[in-house]
Design a protein around this nucleic acid. Structure first.
Length: 755
DNA sequence: ATTAGTGGTGTTTTT
DNA sequence: CACCACTAAT
């Protein structure tokens, strides 16, 4: 629907009232702020998304801007979809052409439109983290770098870290030989990306930033266009993203930043909630609105969350409250093993379901993806339907990546990574030796592997294989031009030989299934794209500055490939069905459920052990726990497993410190710990477990000190035995103490008491 | 050239 | 345990 510039005022008045109805005073104030930058400190469940979308609707409805005159940025694709859905529910406009998206999505859009100005090929491809790591390894091998001394992962971290700060290799400060070498590799890596026409995630941001900084005409154009910039989850912005925002805002535009410093959980990715302090000081200039009324969770849940987060020092300060009642206490279950924890969860889920809670309203949260296995196993055996978010996503599966590599080669033959992935898959008799020759050739002549493959005649079988491959790609490309996207994918899937390859595999059935699914995904993608034909270019071409439209025959393919990298895809079976929701705490951010299980509340896991040595690491973990707690509306379960199978071996952990930060009065312990006597007068304590009365160690001869035993030391405090050796007076045990960590103690000497 | 098998190693969270 | 990199056998 075309925008008329101004809406009939009485019409706007009526609709405006409808839009604003039901907002609390703080929300209303935020929604109707004047055209100035402001910071909205919005606690969990305080109607953050509602405020954001209502402001957009209000700005448009009252004629202050057109749908093209604003930009709204989110972090996840989920969030941006949600925003678009809500806007279209409020306003009778076509949201397709609006600039609402993730940072990376919007940067991609800008770079595609101005690829020439950005110094990129029209068909540049996006590397996901896997692709990036593969490129780094390849680069290092080519340069004969010792990957013991310079682990590829470290280099990846080094490169991304600097890119997220907006620093190119020449500007990096060098401290020692090691960082000098890393930085040389950073420069080499960027050169290689440029040669191949590929761009990693961080590069997408940085390239776009530099484009706007360097090109005044473009910058002015977009500054004039986006008079309002709205940012969701502002606490998660990196320094570079912050500078990108302020560059687009220029001196006159307003940035409406919504965020919650207590929910900042992406510091590891370069995010810094310091941006919030800086933004308040330099842009919002004291215009801060706090949204503290929570509309989601009942009192006890909020009390727990507030009590927990008070242990953090670095806060802007904010306390959630609710007009609803206290509700139920939090339910705590302490299991002996991870398996027992899982079967407890299964039992509870079953009874929740029988009480009428839809499975889709129940979430199982955990700190790390690896924890989902045990839960999935138990759910599968209980035949409860579930859906796992995260983990290996659709577009990250190897068979899909292989198919995409063929498509990428058709779009951009310079993409060495794509070529290496499929030149010998299915096998064409091209082995390591021949590949080395090709790589050597392209390194010497400074050309891509593709060119090398086209021009270097190799002897024997390999030579035939290479020629077959080159001809195959060229034939596929020729057949694809002029076809629709799903037809292209169809042809590539059928013509690449991938299907035959997987048919020969024993476990290839799922993979073939996924390849067929890829064609479906392409069909769905094309249908969506058709809803917004030239909507965007119409708006962009207000000024004659965009590069000529991409070859339309490749445009669809390129868009699809970008989509595959940027939105790896919650593309899974059982999507619509009523199923339990399994996900990491990170991916639960922004969601809410009637009942939530937080499992694995153990030291080393949550908080994660890797966070303990990081500056303010535990505070970030605590914020993560805060996010987890505030996902629940009515019922919240917390569970601990005393022992857990991890990395292939059983580990014994202490109960998470976060549990002791939740006031005891808010908890209902589902299994009270009580002393149990074993053997000849040897007193031990164990966990009373109604669901599985037999514990593993009840099978073994009684002994006072067993691995897994909780103990109390007069000096070191509480701990758990993690290891034991020796007999009689030589007997020693290794204890993991809450306060002082691991210690070996002689049983003859140390004053240990069972706890 | 390809594959199967071995041994060593490292593991958070995501666009 | 799962993913590599490397080796030995085909």
């Amino acid at each position: 629907m075309p925008y008329n510039g101004r809406v009939n005022s009485s019409f706007a008045h009526v609709l405006g009232n409808q839009i604003l109805a039901g907002l609390n005073p703080q929300q209303l104030a935020a929604v109707t702020l004047p055209h100035e930058s402001a910071l909205i400190l919005a606690g969990a469940g305080s109607g953050k998304t509602r405020v954001l979308t209502t402001r957009i609707a209000w700005l448009i409805q009252t004629g202050q801007i057109s749908p093209h005159g604003l930009m709204a940025v989110t972090f996840t694709n989920k969030a941006s979809r949600e925003m678009l859905t809500r806007i279209s529910a409020m306003l009778p406009i076509n949201t397709r052409g609006m600039w609402v998206g993730t940072f990376h999505g919007l940067c991609n859009r800008l770079l595609r439109t101005h690829f020439r100005d950005a110094g990129l090929p029209q068909t540049f491809q996006i590397l996901d983290s896997q692709d990036q790591l593969a490129l780094i390894k390849r680069l290092m091998k080519g340069l004969n770098i010792d990957d013991e001394k310079y682990p590829p992962r470290d280099l990846q971290y080094f490169i991304n870290g600097y890119k997220e700060k907006g620093t190119r290799a020449p500007q990096v400060e060098i401290y020692d030989d090691h960082s000098r070498r890393l930085n040389e590799l950073y420069a080499e890596y960027d050169k290689q990306c440029n040669r191949e026409g590929v761009v990693d995630f961080a590069e997408l941001m940085l390239r776009c930033f530099e484009l706007l900084q360097r090109n005044e005409v473009l910058r002015n154009h977009y500054q004039q266009r986006f008079s309002h910039i709205l940012v969701d989850e502002f606490q998660d912005t990196s320094p570079l993203q912050f500078r990108w925002l302020t560059l687009l805002a220029g001196p006159h535009n307003a940035i409406f930043a919504v965020g919650d410093d207590d929910q900042s959980i992406y510091a590891f990715r370069g995010a810094s909630s310091k941006n919030m302090f800086e933004f308040e000081r330099d842009f919002a200039k004291g215009r801060v609105i706090k949204l503290e009324q929570n509309y989601r969770s009942q009192g006890n849940i909020l009390d727990a969350a507030n009590a927990l987060i008070r242990h953090n020092r670095l806060r802007l300060g904010k306390e959630l409250w609710t007009a609803e009642g206290q509700g139920e206490p939090l339910r705590l279950f302490e299991a002996a093993t991870d398996t027992e924890e899982a079967s407890f969860i299964v039992d509870e889920v079953k009874s929740l379901r029988s009480e009428g809670t839809p499975l889709s309203e129940i979430a199982l949260l955990y700190r790390s993806n690896a924890q989902s296995r045990v839960l999935e196993h138990a759910l599968f055996n209980a035949s409860l339907p579930y859906r796992v978010y995260g983990g290996l996503r659709f577009f990250e599966r190897q068979e899909i990546k292989h198919a995409l590599a063929y498509l990428r080669l058709i779009a951009n033959p310079e993409d060495d990574g794509a070529l290496l992935r499929v030149i010998n898959l299915p096998t064409r008799g091209i082995g390591a030796r021949s590949l080395e020759q090709l790589q050597e050739g392209s390194r010497m002549r400074g050309i891509s592997l593709w060119e090398s493959a086209c021009s270097t005649p190799l002897a024997g079988k390999a030579g035939i294989g290479v020629r077959t491959f080159v001809q195959l790609i060229e034939a596929l490309r020729a057949r694809c031009l002029g076809l629709s996207l799903p037809e292209m994918v169809e042809i590539v899937v059928a013509g690449s030989g991938l299907k035959e390859y997987y048919e020969a595999e024993r476990e290839g059935a799922d993979r073939i299934e996924n390849l067929n699914e890829l064609v479906t995904a392409a069909t769905g993608f094309e249908i969506e794209a058709e809803f917004a034909p030239a909507d965007d270019s119409a708006a962009t071409d207000q000024a004659p500055i965009s590069d000529e439209t991409a070859d339309p025959r490749l445009r669809a393919l390129n868009d699809f490939l970008s989509h595959a990298s940027l939105e790896a895809g919650e593309h899974q079976a059982t999507a619509g069905a009523d199923a339990l929701q399994l996900m990491t705490v990170h991916s639960a951010k922004g969601l809410e459920f009637q009942a939530v299980f937080i499992s694995g509340l153990e030291e080393g896991l949550f908080p994660h052990e890797n966070s303990l040595n990081v500056e303010d690491g535990v505070e970030e973990e605590r914020r993560l726990m805060y996010v987890a707690l505030t996902r629940a509306r009515q019922r919240l379960y917390l569970s601990v497993a005393q022992s857990r199978m991890l990395h292939g071996q059983t580990r014994y952990n202490l109960v998470s410190r976060f549990l002791s930060e939740v006031p005891e009065g808010l908890l209902k312990r589902l299994n009270a710990r009580r002393p149990v006597t074993y053997g000849a007068g040897i007193s031990a304590s164990t966990w009373s477990t109604p669901n599985s009365p037999r514990r593993p160690y009840s099978m073994e001869p009684a002994s006072p000190w067993k691995v897994g035993q909780n103990v109390l030391h007069s000096k070191f405090g509480p701990g758990v035995i993690v290891n034991a050796e020796g007999r009689g007076s030589d007997a020693r045990v290794q204890v993991n103490f809450r306060q002082v960590g691991l210690k070996w103690l002689s049983l003859d000497y140390a004053k240990l008491t069972p706890a």
